[in-house]
Design a protein around this nucleic acid. Structure first.
Length: 122
RNA sequence: ACUGCAAGUUGGUCUAUCGCUCAUAAUUUAUUGUGAGAGGAAAGUCCGGGCAACACAGGGCAAUCCGCCGUUUGAAAAAACGGGUGCUUUAACAGAAACGUUAAGGUAACAGAAAGUGCCACAGAAAACCAGGUAGCCUUUUCUGAUUCGUUAGGAAGGGUGAUAGUGAAAAUGUGAGGUAAGAGCUCACAACCUUAGUUAGUAAUAAUUAAGUUGGGUAAACCUCGGGUGUUGAAAGGCCAAAUAGGUUGCGGACAGGCGGCUCGUCUUAUUCCGAUUUAUCGGGAACCGCAACGGGUAGGUCGCAUAGAUAAAUGAUAGAUAUACCACGGGCAACCGUGAUGAAACAGGACCCGGCUUACAAACUUGCAUUUGUA
RNA sequence: CGGGGCGUAGCGUAGUCCGGUAUCGCGCCACGUUUGGGACGUGGAGGCCGUCAGUUCGAAUCUGGCCGCCCCGA
């Protein structure tokens, strides 16, 4: 499978996001928290993902951009882990990755945390 | 040379792999190819404009912004250059000192305080039309003492005075002469400042000068006056398309109906209300109610607005490597510096309708100016 | 993206319009009262008024630039 990350794999629908934050289940591995839920909507890919960095912690726009880019890169390179199990079970999910750290972590730290999360999700 | 401060310019480059957004071409219609893809401040949102909707005869009031002069640039705000005036720093000259002259800088929200109103704490007699009397100076009356009988010292009450002292951030223009009991722009001369009217120089601000008048505290980033400007709201502007539900309008229907079981029969629900007309049990004219359909406004949403970057939970990234510079370590050299090694972009910071200005942030390098210290000649 | 407001003692506030002395309550400290504590009474300390400049004789107050916080418009 290619390591692509297309528009259809991103979570853009406001209704889906509201559903996710009101009823989704969450788990935490510092510095990243994830919220996920099964969805009945017919999707082209097994999962849709979104990435959140709170403005309360990071006031500068370029800091938020940097963290979102790092999280998105990790997801792009490792999403095949969960795609395999999801396709085997025939389920579709939507998921949000929220950065809860107080300071900007380097790429390996975020990668380690998110790999653990993705493995648990599978 | 080093360090610090201020101003200005620049704000890394290249390769590989995997990816992102938009445009475009091809076809297997979701892939491939090609092209483009953040800043000097994209930031703050402090100004000016474009653009859009609404408003708009003309004039005034209110509110608010701006304010020495000229030239250039600009759509405008504004900027650059030059000049004038005030304040101020340094140096030189001159002088007893103050004042001053010249040169080189710095700085000014730099129209008006002689249209009016307000304010100027404390201190001080008085903080401002007409001033005032604490000490002082002068003088009148009276009391006491001394007396060389001319006066003189002290106390009390009254008057004059704006020179001196004192207070204050600031005290009623300064110097000299006349004048007076003592004094006073009270008078005069010179000087200063201001107003009005001229003359000369200058495009002008302004400067010099003449005449007449006058003595005028400060504050307009206090109200205000004068001159000039400003319609309101902002892309959440605005245009178009347009679900479900509930209103609106129009049309049709309201038993020749609908549901359930069963298989051509059974059963259940319902048969509306009011007004009107007459042939009194019909008509179907009107209204209400119910059902269906269409139309229209409009919400969610979408799309245009929208760009030689153009997204909309918002793209320009990640990893690996090479390298200029800086920094670090070691060695050499008095020093500038030279050599080797390690490190390998690291400051401020990310478009959201678009331009122009202002303000603020900023590693490192380079340029210019100023200052301190050290070394060498 | 646009608009509005607020920063004063440890906490909550007045004073800002119209410049000169920074106020009140709670809290804190000391003393008294009580066997001791609380309550009460008396006295006291604690503020470069968010920050940097400017105007002024003088700025919490007036003007400008920054910093932080809060609210409104879907």
């Amino acid at each position: 499978m290619a390591n692509t990350f297309h528009k259809q794999e991103r979570l853009c629908s406001k209704k889906q996001i509201d559903l996710l934050f009101s009823k989704g289940k969450s788990q935490l591995t510092y510095p990243v928290k994830i919220i996920f839920i099964d969805t009945p909507v017919a999707l082209q890919f097994p999962a849709q993902a979104m990435f959140v960095v709170p403005k309360r912690q990071f006031k500068k726009a370029h800091d938020r951009n940097k963290l979102k880019r790092r999280m998105r890169e990790v997801y792009r390179l490792n999403k095949k882990i969960i795609y395999g199990t999801l396709q085997a079970n025939g389920k579709k999910i939507i998921v949000a990755f929220i950065y809860v750290g107080k300071k900007i972590e380097e790429f390996p730290v975020i990668e380690k945390a998110m790999l653990k999360q993705i493995t648990l999700l599978g």
